[in-house]
């Protein structure tokens, strides 16, 4: 079981209100990602769930039981930290066994569980090394190993991949996803990287300044962002926002269109000059300056023979325009 619910949770540090009243339901077995720009309160929220910080008011229930005042150790959760937080003076084996030792399991039981976790995570050959002798990815796996041996109600991940290089990040992302499919345990994952959020989550919670902007599956958020913030945050490259007269034509304050939904059309409404063309082979990214509209980022599939200074006429795919009102809410 791993059901977590927060009701009317707030957190303030002194006079600074970091989390205004917030409600959230995390279901058993779900992979939930908290995503938002740095300083949005996502890590604080995770630490509140972990019990590493006190909440200022409200209630936290874990599996229906009130855990608001429970110490971190009593909540039955496991956490993987950004810095991995491995114990540098212990071997990998001892690191993974530490929670079991704290739970006073027998030595045989500890060994069995450690071996098992090591096998799942491909760490069997490294059990007697110290964390300092491991690569970044291996350290990450040890941190995960330490979390899984406890068989927690839920896993908490605090930006676990941000210290890895780009290639390794992709691999580890997949490993964590696979782990989730194997264990089927609730996972709460904090990241500022919307790609991680999109690829891993069952449910994404977009946070901004401590408030939840929107909760939903990755594609729900992609297809129907509730407001400008979510629209701008989800999707890469960022959605183009057009204001002024062009938006007025569509009866809205801000008009949004994703780069992948802009096409080169001979009879399109927007004609401009290519400022920058990035040719990746699989895709071509164009930055086009359209007078009266502004700079538009365009993603074209495949190769496209356009260069700096070329003139091009663009148009949106039908039905792929987003409209927002003066308050930034979707229409």
């Amino acid at each position: 079981m791993g059901q977590i619910s927060l009701s009317a949770v707030t957190k303030s540090f002194g006079d600074v209100n970091v989390i205004p009243p917030l409600d959230l339901q995390i279901n058993d077995g779900e992979f939930v990602v908290f995503v938002g720009p740095s300083g949005c309160g996502k890590s604080t929220l995770l630490r509140l769930i972990a019990g590493l910080e006190d909440i200022s008011s409200g209630k936290i229930l874990i599996d229906g039981k009130d855990a608001t005042d429970a110490a971190p150790a009593e909540r039955g959760l496991a956490m993987v930290f950004q810095s991995y937080a491995l114990y540098p003076h212990m071997s990998v084996r001892k690191n993974i066994a530490f929670p079991l030792k704290m739970a006073k399991l027998s030595q045989a039981e500890q060994d069995r569980k450690v071996e098992n976790a090591a096998r799942i995570l491909n760490l069997s050959n490294y059990l007697d090394r110290r964390p300092g002798q491991l690569s970044g990815g291996q350290r990450q796996r040890v941190a995960i190993g330490r979390a899984i041996v406890r068989e927690p109600a839920a896993f908490l991940f605090d930006e676990p991949l941000s210290n890895l290089d780009a290639a390794l990040r992709v691999t580890m992302r997949q490993e964590i996803s696979e782990l989730h499919q194997t264990l089927k345990t609730t996972m709460v994952y904090v990241t500022h990287d919307q790609v991680e959020a999109m690829t891993m989550a069952d449910k994404i919670v977009v946070l901004n300044a401590g408030r939840i902007e929107q909760v939903g599956s990755p594609l729900e958020l992609y297809r129907s962002p509730r407001n400008l913030f979510v629209a701008g945050f989800i999707g890469s490259p960022k959605m183009n926002f057009i204001t002024g007269a062009e938006a007025k034509k569509h009866n809205c304050d801000t008009l949004g269109v994703r780069p992948e939904h802009v096409e080169v059309q001979a009879d399109g409404p927007w004609t401009g000059v290519v400022g920058l063309a990035e040719h990746l082979g699989s895709d071509t990214f164009l930055k086009v300056n359209v007078p009266g509209v502004g700079d538009l980022t365009v993603r074209v599939s495949g190769e496209m023979n356009l260069h700096h200074g070329d003139q091009v006429t663009l148009g949106p795919q039908s039905g792929k325009l987003y409209r927002f009102d003066a308050n930034g809410m979707a229409l």
Binding site: A50, A78, M79, A85, L86, Y87, P99, M102, A103, R150
Partner: peptide
């Protein structure tokens, strides 16, 4: 010493005594 390591120990179920003694 990074505070995260002590927090990790706390998450791992260590009480104060174990946290200071073992970590």
């Amino acid at each position: 010493i990074p505070g995260e390591i002590l927090e990790a120990a706390r998450m791992d179920g260590a009480n104060l005594r174990s946290e200071i003694l073992y970590i």
